[in-house]
Write a protein that binds this DNA or RNA. Structure first.
Lengths: 142, 142
DNA sequence: ATATCAACCTACTTGGTTGGTAGGTAAATA
DNA sequence: TATTTACCTACCAACCAAGTAGGTTGATAT
């Protein structure tokens, strides 16, 4: 398994913030309850998203988090790269990897590289908006 | 990073066995030297490949390992699934996973599932034969 | 002011995995 | 019988995942 809870929870939080957006800040207490994720653990993940400018936070009563952009402006790939570090299947492809001595004679480099590209392309082709609840829930009344 | 040394080394061993195949058994001492991998560690990986019937082994002098099929009959996907367990990006997709309680309301299941399919399809589209040395090395003389 | 709320910060813990090493035994051949 | 090689089991250090615990800081409502 390659995607840890950090990445998956971050994604779920962002979808939750998008789905429950009413222009106000949304406290993590609510998100944690809806998503059934430990509040304390979520609190450890949020600073990552702040640092990546995916969300902004506000202290105190009426505080919480809100998205900084429109849902269709968040690529899943961007979120996963931020929270997981990167999506490289092998270490020699990692961003700051020291060049592998065996690369010239390596039979598998191209295969890993192509998979890396496929992975990034796939997750970059999906946005938060794509993942939001749709169609409308049954109990939705006009 | 998602592919561990177990899977990567296994792949390199199989390619090495294919490239150096002369019908005889090839001792791991040689492979370990060529591939610059600890012999002792390789010895721990080989039983997996035996159990998966990817290779057969022979004891004693003149012993070693050899492939049981033609190189083009080994899918990389098959090798990785054998050595890595499986290629699922998230636990709820793993073969024997207990069904996730939140699946009905999960916004990301389809995304992971599709990625899982892409991953398996990609690695199943490549064989050991595809990864063998080609073109012929410079020092090759007719 | 003060109570409350919620973000934010730091340290710790628990359990599992990775990537090995060490030291053998079993089987085959020279 | 010596040598070679696969094969087996136990162990280990380091790291990481997935949290928990216990605060502090900053903003708002009363």
């Amino acid at each position: 398994m390659m995607i840890s809870t950090r990445g998956r929870y971050a994604l779920r939080v962002l979808i939750d913030l998008a789905e429950n957006n009413q222009g106000k800040y949304i406290p993590m207490k609510d998100v944690a309850q809806r998503q059934e994720i430990s509040l304390k653990y979520l609190e450890r993940i949020m600073p990552l998203l702040i640092k990546g400018k995916l969300i902004e936070g506000a202290h105190g009563k009426g505080g919480g988090y809100k998205l900084t952009r429109e849902p269709n402006d968040y690529k899943v790939g961007e979120i996963l790269r931020l929270t997981e570090g990167n999506l490289a299947p092998v270490s020699c492809l990692e961003c700051n990897a020291e060049p592998c001595v065996r690369k010239a004679q390596c039979r598998t480099y191209e295969m890993w590289k192509k998979f890396y590209d496929i992975t990034n392309d796939y997750f970059d082709s999906i946005t938060i908006a794509d993942l939001m609840k749709t169609p409308l829930p049954i109990d939705y009344v006009i």
